[in-house]
Amino acid sequence: MSARPQSANSWQYRALNALTPGLDHFSDALLDEIAAGVPIVAGTADLQYSNGLEKFARLAPDRFVQFGISEQNMVSAAAGMAACGQSPYVATFASFLALLCCEQIRMDVAYSKLPVRLVGHHAGISLGFYGTSHHATEDLAIMRAIAGLAVVAPSDGNQLRSLIRAARDWAGPIYFRIGRGRDPEIYGTPPVLEIGKGIERSTGRDLTIIATGSTVHPADLAAKALTEAGHSVGLIDMHTVKPLDAALIRDVAGRTGQILTVEEHNVLGGLGGAVAEVLADIGGSVRLTRHGIMDEYSLIAPPTHLYHHYRLDAGGIEQVARGLLS
């Protein structure tokens, strides 16, 4: 008798990449960089199937380093490699990378001005019922407070590719905040962009939503629904949280009624906090509302249930925005 799984609905970890084609963007972008002559080294801490680096490991085995479950060792080792001329990308869950490895990132990477690329995946509450240990709702705030470290949060796989391409010419270290490879596509091809320059996808006189990373897609849907309902609602894809595009925020503040920031993160210290700092510096009167996780630990549930609960899906963001427009 063979008891092996027979149903197409059954699956196991090593099939994750095949089941989640969006994971390929990360490996593909790094392979492109190698083809362009960048001395890429990719490393992970026992998560090569979760972040899709399994593909990179297969196609560029001599440029792949498996660290096992030793995240802090991985970050410091990456700093050592960068000090010797390599261009290391190291990836693990955002919770472990930004929180567990915080001091290694500050001292060995950022203070040392080494061009390490830190890729925190499954950010926010996207690990659902894995619980608080696996949630990263503080990483933007922590990484943003580290001097010399750029912080980017691509909104889909194509934008991740653009940001990895842009990183080639960025001298300092970068923290990439990404999801779980299941982001709906926003950009059909890798968009033209610049680190530190937000993308104004639409303009709005009544309200401008500023979103980053995973919240750009649902915010886009919400803005479109509100526009169809007769409101004038714009959207900025703020893929770089640091250095923040203060010029764009200043500009928008002068031509929109209100600003709503939306992030899969604590409302303290992340995108909303960063925008608040810029608005405080301006001293203008535009009203800012910060939407995200309200300084609490998330419940557990499947991720989509959590997005609904915390009003981070399109319907929830639309509801929050309607409350501001009424």
């Binding site: 479950i69 472990f96 894995y130 696996h134 499947p302």
Partner: peptide, 28 residues
Amino acid sequence: YTRLGNPLGDHPDMTKVPGIDFSSGSIG
């Protein structure tokens, strides 16, 4: 188990689950 707001998730949580003496999830 794992449904919205339930105390039982993939990892044990001492703040939510009677009988769990310490939370874990981050290895080590």
